[in-house]
Design a protein around this nucleic acid. Structure first.
Length: 253
DNA sequence: AATAACAACAACCGCTCCTAT
DNA sequence: GATAGGAGCGGTTGTTGTTAT
């Protein structure tokens, strides 16, 4: 599943890492740390570029890196965080203990690829759907990806939202981008995915932001008592989220 | 049993950002 | 303030395992 090892014209090894290289890198970093990735391979005696060493350490050798299948909770969280941050995989990874940006990115893309094939029309439609990451350079692919996750229900819900919303795509975009700074405008309705359904990746739901207050400023009881707010609105307060995460992590371990 | 298609994921590449000078 | 070097990030590719035909 990995590229066959080979040497480039500069004598730098590329491709799959051998167990010996792994051991060498691990031993060196455990003893000396990794203050300078560029010079690390030279001192460690590894015929790799610093970049490659950093990637290998970060994604594979680093203690605490979790491998294997994603739990439903992780999928849900990735979905929510992707909605919040877009393709900021490092930011998303920071909220998923033991998962790396590369791994999450791969996981995301494989899921999306699959769902795109299941329903190519919705991804086309979603391209026309403005999203709240208007300023992001990856906004086009984001929209494609988000739409691509959906099934027929997504199509219907998007149509419903677009037709029922008083906001034109332009104004919707504007209003939505204000949401990204947690300045939730009154009665803004957004289309998203139903966390309570069986398949979080394919089912839509309505998120009604009814408060004039930024989500971050909602008191806990307000959040919990609001039928329109979800768990993810609840964890929109990242400080609170950070309190929740360790508990959740214990549960899944 | 053979093979085509799909899924998963490790790793590379190029760009951007950050920091030191 | 300008510049250079290094680190990090996100997009993409290549390979192999698995499943379907």
């Amino acid at each position: 599943m990995v590229r066959a090892p080979f040497y480039d014209k500069n004598g730098v090894k590329k491709g799959a890492w051998s167990p010996e290289e792994d051991n060498t890198l691990r031993a060196y970093i455990e003893e000396h740390g990794h203050l300078n990735w560029r010079s690390l391979p030279k001192f460690a005696g590894i015929s790799r570029c610093g970049k490659s060493c950093r990637l290998r350490w970060t994604n594979y050798l680093q203690p605490g890196v979790k491998r294997g299948n994603y739990t439903q909770e992780e999928d849900d969280l990735i979905l929510k965080l992707h909605e919040e941050f877009g393709n900021k995989w490092s930011v998303i990874a920071a909220k998923l203990p033991g998962r790396t940006d590369n791994e999450i990115k791969n996981h995301w893309h494989t899921r999306i690829k699959k769902l795109t094939k299941q329903n190519p029309t919705s991804s086309q439609l979603a391209k026309e759907q403005p999203c709240k990451h208007e300023s992001s350079p990856t906004v086009t692919s984001q929209n494609t990806e988000l739409g691509a996750q959906s099934g027929p229900k997504f199509d219907a819900s998007v149509h419903q939202i677009l037709e029922s919303s008083p906001l034109s795509p332009e104004t919707f975009s504007s209003a939505s981008s204000s949401l990204s700074s947690n300045q939730a405008s009154a009665s803004t309705t957004m289309s998203w995915f139903n966390e309570s359904s069986g398949d979080f990746w394919t089912e839509p739901f309505q998120l009604n932001v009814q408060s004039n207050y930024p989500v971050n400023y909602l008191r806990e009881e307000e959040v919990l008592s609001s039928p329109s707010l979800t768990f993810y609105d609840y964890i929109g307060d990242m400080d609170l989220f950070d309190q929740v995460m360790p508990t959740w992590q214990e549960n899944i371990d």
